[in-house]
């Protein structure tokens, strides 16, 4: 008899191999052990701060997840963030809303440029986005001549990163909203299934009638949009837009996605995993900050954690043969 649901045996075996579950356990452990040794960790103010920062890196990581799911990579996330921030920043004089709209639009356009280069020129995406990373970063500086744009006169813009709605930081709300929408998209829409199929086997997806170029284009534009969305949340923390705001952000975003169980080969990963990845990532950094190990040690542990987690996932996923 064929069963339609998850059969119990499979489920029990599955859950121990489930990255999301493992990550959840890790998150819980960090939280518990952290608050034992660093009591200030569990304070509401601190936790909200952790959530806010996790939301910012998490947003960009969701975009990175989309691109990884279709079997490609986006190294230009940080540069898209910088460039879309400064183009939006040029509009700050006309008000916060035009600025934000231009930022998001720029992000999507830059994402589409990546997608077109990858699908039409058929170049390895690592190379394409390495190139656009450089181009966009340069353009960001050219646009502002290397100067910062101050946001003191744009309360709405600033409230995006610093405000609260019903006691919840605005970035968290945006992050969860985007996360839920994309999670539903991946799970319950045709496009979502096609994203997984394209990443798992591009050739088979194409032969099966999927417009793989379109799917990749969608993934890259989402990545562009989420990078652009994360930008204002970050710049309002410091009251200013700088053309180098996004530098290095692509690596954090990819690290968070991978931490969340997204495969670098494609076709495997979830938005929920990435959200948990972002929380774990930020909480761990917070524990380190509070315990006074210093910013640079954070950097070291960030890298160390990334390597360790990937190794652990690999051991769990060890193929049958």
């Amino acid at each position: 008899m064929i069963s339609n649901g998850l059969d119990d045996d499979n489920f029990k075996k599955g859950i121990l191999k489930n990255h999301t579950f493992i990550l959840f356990i890790i998150l819980a452990c960090v939280m518990i052990i952290g608050s034992i040794f660093v009591p200030s960790l569990a304070q509401k103010g601190n936790l909200l701060n952790v959530l806010r920062l996790a939301s910012i890196v998490g947003l960009a990581a969701i975009g990175a997840t989309m691109v990884l799911l279709v079997g490609e990579i986006d190294l230009s996330i940080g540069s898209i963030m910088s460039l879309s921030l400064v183009t939006g920043g040029l509009m700050v004089g006309y008000g916060s809303l035009p600025a934000l709209a231009v930022t998001c639009l720029t992000g999507i356009v830059l994402g589409i440029i990546n997608g077109v280069l990858v699908t039409k020129l058929k170049i390895n995406s690592l190379m394409v986005t390495l190139g656009t990373m450089s181009v966009f970063a340069g353009l960001a500086n050219v646009v502002t001549r290397g100067q910062s744009i101050f946001l003191y006169d744009s309360p709405l813009y600033l409230s995006l990163g610093r405000g609260y709605i019903a006691g919840i930081p605005v970035p968290v709300i945006i992050f969860l909203f985007v996360g839920i929408v994309l999670s539903i998209m991946l799970r319950y829409t045709k496009t979502g299934k096609e994203i997984y199929f394209t990443g798992a086997n591009k050739r088979a997806a194409w032969v099966s009638g999927i417009n793989t170029d379109k799917i990749k284009l969608i993934a890259y534009s989402i990545s562009g949009l989420t990078a652009a969305l994360a930008g204002p949340l970050l710049s309002s923390q410091t009251n200013r837009i700088t053309p180098i705001q996004g530098v290095g952000f692509e690596l954090s975003a990819i690290a968070v996605a991978v931490l969340g169980g997204t495969s670098l080969i494609g076709g495997k990963g979830t938005v929920i995993g990435t959200i948990l990845g972002a929380l774990t990532f930020q909480l761990l950094l917070n524990v380190l900050t509070l315990s006074g190990v210093g910013t640079y040690m954070e950097q070291v542990l960030k890298g160390f954690l990334l390597i360790v987690i990937v190794v652990v996932y690999q051991v769990i996923d060890k193929p049958r043969r």
Binding site: K190, K193, F197, A200, R203, V207, S208, G267
Partner: peptide, 24 residues
Amino acid sequence: QREGLALTLDVKDNIAVSSLNYLR
């Protein structure tokens, strides 16, 4: 394996992949 299937996805998604328009 190269042109027909996504080996890392499950049976139902592999069967349904070309018919998703009609499963909405």
